[in-house]
Nucleic acid binder design. Structure first.
Length: 497
RNA sequence: GGGCCGUUAGCUCAGCUUGGUCAGAGCACCGGACUUUUAAUCCGGGUGUCCAGGGUUCGAAUCCCUGACGGCCCA
């Protein structure tokens, strides 16, 4: 009868019990760390360099990520967020505590105190005189050499991904933080005020997207998660803020793929007395600033492309882009000399796959199929058909176009901006056209009329330049990641039964 | 929404084509040795709902069907 070997968790719980029996608290409240790992190492290297003899005595702490035991001498690699540091535990130096090692595992947190030395192989090491358990782990870590590869488990248990693939994963998220910091400081330096507007809204307006629906019990009212911050920020412009921005989570009830997650982060900004050309300059400078600040470079590598972010960026009118890359002259369609159905027929002849739908959707599909894949270097597509842009002001001299741009890099939409429509009557007509399209096509991805916003506009909004920039897309671009899941710590996953 | 691929030990994977010593390897883990290691080493040990459910068969990780979850491509 072979003896039963306990599973990993049981075996670790037995160790935990043995520690308790020895009077050791496996989850003590206090830590006596004197230095993060990187600081301890720097301190040692400085003192060695200055040749002042005495090696520093430190207390370091971290997770045990490897152990190499040789009887009465054990080496342990401790990791904290600043890096890895080797600790040596010798029976003759730690005395009675040495046998406790038997019940410590890879994955546990400990602290260790002692002088810093260099081992004979040259490794900077804390030669422990004492050590304490800080937290016992009762689950085994993923394999040390191959890490954690299973994509599903990496996203569902991101902490394991971070533990096992630390050197590859954590830097991206640190960079994400720095990019957002760079954007924020850029905006603040230009005199913008950061604000917060409601996430739960009575009308999901301001963008073309399906909202998440929820319900407020006390008010007994249906509410939506915001699909944009636009209309609230414009209310603030009406109220007299001249420069506002919000970096916030946006929710859109649509599919999940390599560059879409149902909740994502967008920055919107609104600047009174500015127009879309001012916003264009701001976007170029902002993205360039972020790349400079975080990566100290004006060019970034994205897959096989070397992307030059130095302003100014190419500016290409929408109709010219469709003509250049799609071979279609939009003039007759814009002027009403030909119908949307005619456009669909012509586009299909040119090899594009278009389904019947509202005209704004047809234009949008045409843009994404014909043009976007070609826009590798940063490009502003400007002057959109009015039907696509119910919140943008008409372009003078072009009755069917509006002052709008979208910015594309490596074929990916990065930003969207308008000279904002501030004529309340015109805005009402545009909303009505959207409602009409919704009725005709039963399309949920049209904009909705927000009466409260129209009321605000009637009090007068100054000429304003507005911007929405996808922070996740920006982070993908600058960090070279090709899937949004790799720049979101917890991407959306289907729950399992 | 459509197509393709994947799911086997804690982790990384083999085994599936051709059903039958097929429950396997490395790391981890368990027991033992070891006072300068770096994926430590040496000796011994396999710890498993082969994603789930159904079917075919004397016999299914393997073949068929359905489903779940994930990934890639397309829309």
């Amino acid at each position: 009868m072979p003896k039963r070997v306990p599973d990993h968790r049981t075996s670790r719980q037995q160790k935990l019990q043995r520690l308790l029996d020895k009077g050791i608290d496996p989850y003590p409240p206090r830590v006596t760390r004197t230095h993060p790992n990187a600081d301890a190492r720097d301190l040692f290297l400085r003192q060695v360099q200055s040749e002042q003899g005495e090696s520093p005595t430190v207390t370091v702490a971290g997770r045990i990520i490897a152990r190499r035991g040789m009887g009465k001498n054990t080496f342990i690699d401790l990791r904290d967020s600043t890096g890895k540091l080797q600790v040596q535990l010798r029976a003759d130096l730690v005395g009675d505590a040495y046998p406790i090692l038997r019940d410590l595992d890879v994955g546990d947190f400990i602290e260790a105190s002692g002088p810093m030395i260099r081992t004979r192989t040259g490794e900077v090491t804390v030669e422990a005189r004492s050590f304490n358990l800080l937290s016992k782990s009762i689950r085994p870590l993923p394999e040390k050499w191959h890490g954690l590869r299973d994509t599903e488990q990496r996203y569902r248990q991101r902490y394991l991904d971070l533990i096992a693939n630390n050197d590859d994963i954590m830097p991206t998220f640190v960079q994400r933080s720095r990019i957002i910091e760079a954007v924020r400081s850029f905006m603040n330096a230009r005199g913008f005020v950061e604000v917060d507007t409601p996430v739960l809204v009575p009308i999901a307006a301001g963008a073309l997207a399906r909202p998440f629906v929820t319900h407020h019990n006390a008010l007994d009212q249906q509410l939506y998660m915001r699909i944009a911050t636009e209309l609230y920020l414009k209310r603030l412009i009406v109220g007299g803020f001249d420069k506002v921005y919000e970096i916030g989570r946006i929710f859109r009830n649509e599919g999940v793929d390599q560059d879409h997650n149902p909740e994502f982060t967008m920055m919107e900004s609104y600047e009174a007395y500015a127009d879309y050309t001012n916003v264009m300059s701001m976007v170029e400078e902002m993205v360039h600033h972020a790349a400079q600040t975080v990566f100290d470079s004006s060019t970034i590598q994205y897959e096989e492309h070397s992307i030059d972010l130095k302003p100014p960026w190419r500016r290409l009118p929408f109709c010219d882009a469709i003509k250049e890359y799609g071979g279609i002259d939009l003039t007759p369609y814009l002027q009403g000399e030909a119908t949307t159905d005619d456009l669909i027929v012509e586009a299909r002849q040119k090899g594009f796959d278009l389904a019947p739908g509202p005209v704004h959707q047809v234009y949008d599909k045409l843009l994404s199929q014909a043009v976007e894949p070609h826009l590798i270097q940063p490009t502003f597509i400007i002057d959109y058909p009015m039907a696509m842009s119910p919140l943008a002001k008409k372009k003078p001299g072009s009755p069917h176009l509006v002052e709008r741009f979208e910015c594309f890099v490596v074929g990916m939409e990065l930003a969207n901006a308008y000279t904002e429509l501030n004529d309340p009557m015109e805005q009402r007509r545009r909303f009505e056209e959207q409602e009409e399209a919704r009725r005709l096509f039963a399309d949920e991805e049209t904009d909705r009329t927000d009466e409260d916003f129209l009321l605000a506009l009637e009090y007068g909004m100054p000429p304003t330049g507005g911007l929405g920039i996808g922070i996740d897309r920006l982070v993908m671009l600058l960090t070279g990641q090709t899937t949004i899941r790799d720049i979101l710590l917890f991407p959306q996953m289907r729950t399992r039964d």
